[in-house]
């Protein structure tokens, strides 16, 4: 099937406690694009990405409206399984994502739910662990890993499902500089559509040519990452700040 990787139209959502998080969100991401989703805390970024595979929203029985298509497939109850295979979601806190007793059990969880068994399952697990360089830690329990290692395993748990769209929630948060760079190398080497929530603006510029800026439950800007970061007025209006001394026009980005 064809169509953009992600298409979201007029998305509205309120949490069960009455707090409304999305007030009409529209955007499209084409196949192979790498897009950063920027915005201050509480803008609704995480809520939005939890809609992309039908975890939140009307399809999950929640309170909201709007339309979502993934790779041309509409997000409806009968397509949920297919959508969840296509969209791989990496959560912000790896402890939320790594819930099985060992790394191996955890990476196998997704593919096993897809119906893989035996040698095929083992191969898939190994392949995903190799992609993030964690193949030597397969039998450890998550609480015996460092934070950076847990983040990488969290990425592997999703890669093991061979998603078409990889969605990451603040992948660089709480990582030390080396772990942050290692993760960037891994992400840059993946051949998937990428949507990445981040407060780490240099990271966005390094990995994503395009950025969406979100505030108060709406998309308020959409354009080249370099242009958005260079627009001082826009940045100030939405509580975004570049690191001290960082000039978005003087560093290389992913553009060719």
């Amino acid at each position: 099937m064809s169509g953009p990787a992600i298409q979201v139209e007029r998305l509205v959502f309120a949490y069960p406690d009455g707090r409304q998080a999305l007030f009409g969100v529209d955007f499209t991401v084409e196949r192979g694009e790498r897009v950063a989703l920027l915005g201050p805390n509480g803008a609704g970024k995480t809520t939005l990405v939890l809609h992309l595979n039908g975890i939140l929203g009307s399809v999950a029985g929640g309170t909201g409206s709007g339309r979502i298509q993934i790779g041309g497939t509409g997000l409806h109850r009968e397509h949920l399984g297919e959508i969840r295979r296509k969209v791989g979601l990496v959560f912000q806190d790896p402890d939320d994502q790594l819930f099985m007793p060992t790394v191996r059990d955890d990476v196998a969880f997704g593919p096993a739910n897809l119906g893989l068994r035996g040698a095929e399952l083992d191969d898939r697990v190994h392949e995903a662990l190799v992609q993030v360089g964690m193949q030597d830690h397969a039998d450890l329990a998550p609480h015996h890993l460092s934070f950076g290692q847990r983040r990488r395993v969290a990425v592997a748990t999703v890669l093991a499902m061979r998603p078409e769209v990889l969605v990451l929630d603040e992948p660089s948060s709480n990582l030390d500089p080396a772990a942050r760079r290692e993760l960037a190398d891994i992400l840059a080497g993946l051949d998937v559509t990428l949507l990445m929530i981040t407060h780490d603006l240099p990271y966005a510029l390094q990995l994503c040519e395009r950025s969406l800026l979100m505030d108060d439950g709406r998309i308020v800007a959409d354009g080249k990452t370099r242009d958005l970061l260079g627009d001082a007025e826009l940045m100030r209006a939405h509580r975004l700040e570049l690191p001290y001394g960082f000039n978005p026009h003087s560093v290389p980005g992913p553009e060719r």
């Binding site: 007029r10 509205v12 309120a14 069960p16 406690d17 009455g18 409304q20 007030f23 009409g24 029985g61 309170t63 909201g64 409206s65 709007g66």
Partner: peptide
């Protein structure tokens, strides 16, 4: 909303859509 023993006592929700219209929805 997390308190099981009091779920039946919850208030209705107010929802604002993309055009600014307001509607009332009962919680789960």
């Amino acid at each position: 909303d997390l308190v099981y023993a009091a779920r039946h006592l919850q208030q209705d929700l107010v929802l604002v859509d993309a055009d600014g219209n307001t509607s009332t929805v009962s919680p789960d």
